[in-house]
């Protein structure tokens, strides 16, 4: 009984962290068809922003939920204006340029913070369930990712900005002829996407030792989750994160964590071979 509860929590946590990791990339990819390979580095910078703020004496939750997304969002804004703006519609070129940016940010962080591991302790204590110890912070991550999904859905469905964004997503030329500048919309979207990446990196920071190259650990997972999810933002994210999270946790518990990771990747290859348009390209079409 206790073990099954622990496994359930671990699975929910795996799904939630995949949603968190993928959200920023999904917003940018879904809206602008731009694959941001510097996404992992945006998360890494979110983590560093949090740690720096905490060391300066800011409350850890303020640092995570406010400061890190703002800082990374601003960095994203600069990047969009300087680089990505010139490459819209050239999918492969944006991938290459953002890969270059990712290397640039790794180098930059190494120069500023040094090539050492930094970290902060988790702000929520763990507790025991029967004979097992559960990390209380896992629940925080689950709650954050649920709120995040609801938030994205609410913004897209109910607000005027969301309506305009969805319109530009479907037909940028039509949105432009109705008086909305796609340039502005893309800029704002990229800001939001980067801020989400920063948030994800910040929230996950207490769980990992942060080094300048930690972005690499996230990018493949984020990439897989978003591509396998397909065109719809929330439904795609939810379905692919659910699928991959459960697959990796089943193999982790059955065999070992390394096999769990490998199983996730193999599942991704098979899934993409069977459904090259992503899960929501075939099922749940037209949902958000």
């Amino acid at each position: 009984m206790d073990l099954s509860f622990v496994i359930l929590v671990e699975m929910l946590y795996a799904v939630a962290s995949l949603i968190l990791i993928g959200a920023g990339l999904a917003v940018v990819f879904g809206m602008m068809k731009v694959i941001n390979l510097a996404h992992g580095e945006f998360m890494m910078m979110g983590g560093y922003a949090t740690i720096t703020a905490v060391n300066l004496g800011v409350n850890v939750f303020v640092a995570m939920l406010v400061i890190a997304p703002l800082i990374v969002g601003l960095i994203g804004l600069v990047v969009e204006r300087l680089v990505i703006r010139h490459l819209y519609g050239r999918l492969v070129d944006t991938m290459l340029a953002t890969w270059g940016l990712s290397l640039f940010f790794i180098g930059m962080t190494t120069m500023i913070f040094g090539n050492t591991t930094t970290g902060i302790s988790t702000p929520i204590p763990g507790f025991a369930v029967g004979g097992y110890q559960i990390n209380g912070y896992n629940f925080f991550i689950i709650v954050v990712s649920v709120l995040l999904l609801i938030g994205i859905l609410a913004v897209l469905k109910t607000t005027r900005a969301g309506l305009v964004a969805r319109g530009a997503m479907q037909r940028a030329d039509m949105a432009a002829s109705l008086g909305y500048s796609p340039d502005r919309i893309y800029m704002a979207t990229f800001f939001c996407g980067s801020a989400l990446s920063g948030l994800a990196g910040a929230v996950l920071a207490p769980l990992v030792g942060l080094v300048p190259t930690s972005g690499g650990a996230y990018i493949a997972k984020a990439f897989i989750t978003v591509i396998a999810g397909g065109p719809s933002l929330v439904a795609g994210l939810l379905s692919s994160a659910g699928f991959f999270g459960i697959v990796s946790q089943v193999f982790t518990f059955a065999i070992s964590p390394v096999i769990g990771e490998v199983a996730l990747l193999v599942a991704a290859v098979i899934l993409l071979r069977l459904l090259p348009q992503g899960i929501t390209g075939r099922f749940l079409k037209g949902r958000l």
């Binding site: 340029a97 940016l101 290397l103 790794i106 180098g107 930059m108 190494t110």
Partner: peptide, 17 residues
């Protein structure tokens, strides 16, 4: 002085642009 990765990244971005 300057990190190696930073220069490689910069070269890639500049060439793509």
């Amino acid at each position: 002085m300057i990190d190696n990765t930073l220069i490689m990244g910069l070269i890639l971005v500049l060439f793509v642009l």
